[in-house]
């Protein structure tokens, strides 16, 4: 929380920086907890409903804790035309995600779709923590996640 306060202070507690503040906080903590939003509301002297309202308007803000790796499958036109949906489905299946679930049970992966990343020439693309992987296929995507899982497992053993 001290760090959150620092971030807010760095913007001079000005209301119009609300979005930038939430972006910075999320960049560090991966999501915005109710406590964080309440603190922001209090320090910027705005209603907490307003802060919640802004946070839920924008796609990029997450009010739920996310996995260590955030996987985004681009569903822009170019990627869609080049079959991004099967990739998304394959990953869902691989992560054993239920209906509205976005984060895998082990807390490692969060799967999202994203509106055009602008890397259309490389379609279909998948990003893992904002690193772009181009010309993906369902198989390549699973391979990628498998590698990450193995890496994590190796880490845990160390």
């Amino acid at each position: 929380m001290a760090r959150v306060e620092e971030i807010i202070d760095s913007y001079g507690c000005e209301r119009h920086h609300l979005i930038a503040i939430m972006q910075d906080v999320q960049a560090e903590f991966k999501y915005l907890s109710p406590q964080v939003l309440e603190l922001i509301a209090q320090k910027l002297d705005i209603g907490v409903a307003k802060v919640y309202s802004v946070a839920t308007f924008y796609e990029n803000f997450s009010l739920e804790a996310k996995g260590k790796y955030i996987i985004k499958v681009c569903d822009g036109t170019a990627c869609h035309v080049r079959k991004s949906q099967p990739i998304y489905n394959a990953i869902r299946e691989y992560l054993e995600l239920e209906e509205k679930q976005k984060t895998s049970a082990d807390g490692l992966f969060t799967l999202e779709t994203v509106a055009c990343l602008g890397a259309c020439g490389l379609a279909p693309v998948v990003t893992v923590n904002d690193q772009v992987h181009s010309k993906m296929s369902p198989e390549l995507a699973i391979e990628l996640l498998d590698d990450l899982r193995k890496e994590e497992a190796a880490h845990d053993r160390d």
């Binding site: 209603g47 919640y52 308007f57």
Partner: peptide, 10 residues
């Protein structure tokens, strides 16, 4: 001036 309720999501 309370702002208790507001729009959420979009």
């Amino acid at each position: 001036g309370m702002g208790i309720i507001d729009f959420a999501r979009r």
